[in-house]
Simulated assay, not measured.
Amino acid sequence: MASHGNPTSFAATVFDYIIVGGGTAGLTLAARLTETPNITVGVLEAGLDRTSDPKVLTPGFAPSMWDDPDYDWIFKTTPQIHGNNRVVSHPRGKQLGGSSAINFDYWTHASQRDIDDWGELGNPGWSWDELFPYFLKSETYNPPPPSTSSQVDTTFVSPPLHGITGPVQDSFPPFYDNFYKSWEPTYKNLGLGPTGDPKGGRAIGAYTTLLTIEPKNASRSYAGTAYWRPNAGRKNLVVLTGALATRIIFARDKGVLVATGVSFTVDGESYTVSATGEVILCAGAFQSPQLLELSGIGDASLLKSKGINLVYDNPNVGENLQDHVYVPLGFEAAPGEVTFESLRNETNLAEAVVDYTVNHTGPLASGTSNAYISFSQILDALSKGEQSKHGKPAK
């Protein structure tokens, strides 16, 4: 069921902007556009509003949402020929906030070079210098208390590189286990520590990752709580959840193709909503091209084979997706050490839930760490290891 708005009244409203997808991009755009009171925005989200759901708000519960159809689209690849025919899962958030509601809460950014390369490929405005002010605008950095800094090194953080008034809260989690306390000195001994604050876009090396966690109660800070809930009362913003977009409606204005509305379904009933300004597609890397194809924009031969009327032939739509994979390695832990696996034990889980609920700490209040390490750093560390093994002094 839709948990916000009514599909009949939503469809009867002519909005300035229709945003398809209430994820990170969609909710951010909706919040920014409706800062102007006379601009009306309607958001279509196929998932529900789970901004009060403990499973979403508790950082340690993130993996429990994967492969759950109430939270995750459960996308999977075809068997990968060069990966021993393995099928790789692609968790994607099915709810307000999108994938920011089910990820590991990392607060990380691309390098300056990567972002500048986007601009050089022909995308004006996509440069580090032009985007960095918006990085600051989105963030509130919460400095660690002494109790946290005594457990891990937080000295690499350069406060001027972080925002202090943005809607997304980030902090160092209040709990670090013994594995992490071993991991940090290990990478430093190998010469793989951070060369600066990664937020500056130039540093490399392993480091203690800031997480999008509200330090007041160790809860997830994400698009749903940062951009939707504070603005839910705006009269010029309507969010319809449980609404699956099925097609973009197009018209031609003096020969130019113009998006004028969106068809969608709620509880099996079909509706159409119109926009006088723009239809903004924010359905993610998988469903944005899918919706374009369903709407007649894509490879003409493919659309014809599926019985879809061609609106515009663009063979690039839906093709050439590349993504990295997450490859975990499992090790047997010593007795008594707390791991995510140990939380399968009902007693351990109950203790962790109490610790999180009452004290806002413990394994459920934490996350994982992260590292950006260059090949040159790795080769240098391996070289030093070989020299040490053979009794040669390391340089």
Rank of each mutant, 00 (worst) to 15 (best):
T140A: 15
G97S: 07
G307P: 06
A12G: 05
A243S: 12
W66H: 14
A300Q: 13
S369G: 09
G367Y: 05
P7H: 02
N316Q: 13
P198V: 02
A226C: 10
S9F: 00
G125C: 14
L210A: 00
L310D: 04
V317D: 10
Q387M: 03
K254R: 06
G277N: 05
K389R: 14
D299S: 11
F264Y: 13
A334E: 13
Y176A: 01
G255C: 05
T339E: 02
K181T: 08
P143I: 03
K76C: 09
A226M: 08
G122F: 02
I81H: 13
V56M: 14
I18T: 12
S147A: 12
D299I: 05
K395D: 08
H162G: 11
D170A: 12
P124Q: 09
G242F: 05
P124M: 11
L321P: 00
D116Y: 01
L57A: 12
P215G: 13
L382S: 13
N84I: 08
W66P: 09
I74R: 09
G47F: 05
A381F: 03
S147L: 00
L382R: 09
K199Q: 15
T154Y: 08
V327L: 15
K395T: 12
N178D: 11
L343C: 09
D267S: 14
P230S: 08
Y326S: 10
G166P: 10
A371T: 01
L237N: 05
H324Y: 07
L379R: 10
L210F: 00
T260F: 06
D177H: 01
I249Q: 14
R32T: 02
G93M: 02
K55V: 15
D299K: 04
P198R: 02
A245H: 07
N316L: 15
G307V: 03
D177Q: 04
P144S: 12
I18R: 08
D72G: 06
P315R: 06
A110G: 15
E139F: 00
A30S: 09
S288T: 10
P393Q: 14
T241G: 00
G166E: 11
T361C: 11
T8F: 10
T272Y: 04
G296D: 09
A334N: 06
R229F: 06
G60A: 13
V266Q: 10
H82F: 12
F15K: 03
T339I: 04
N6H: 04
L329S: 14
I81D: 15
T78M: 15
S64A: 15
A12C: 01
A226T: 08
S288D: 04
P328I: 12
Q322N: 12
E278M: 11
F179M: 07
G385F: 02
E45N: 08
T186W: 12
V325E: 11
D299V: 04
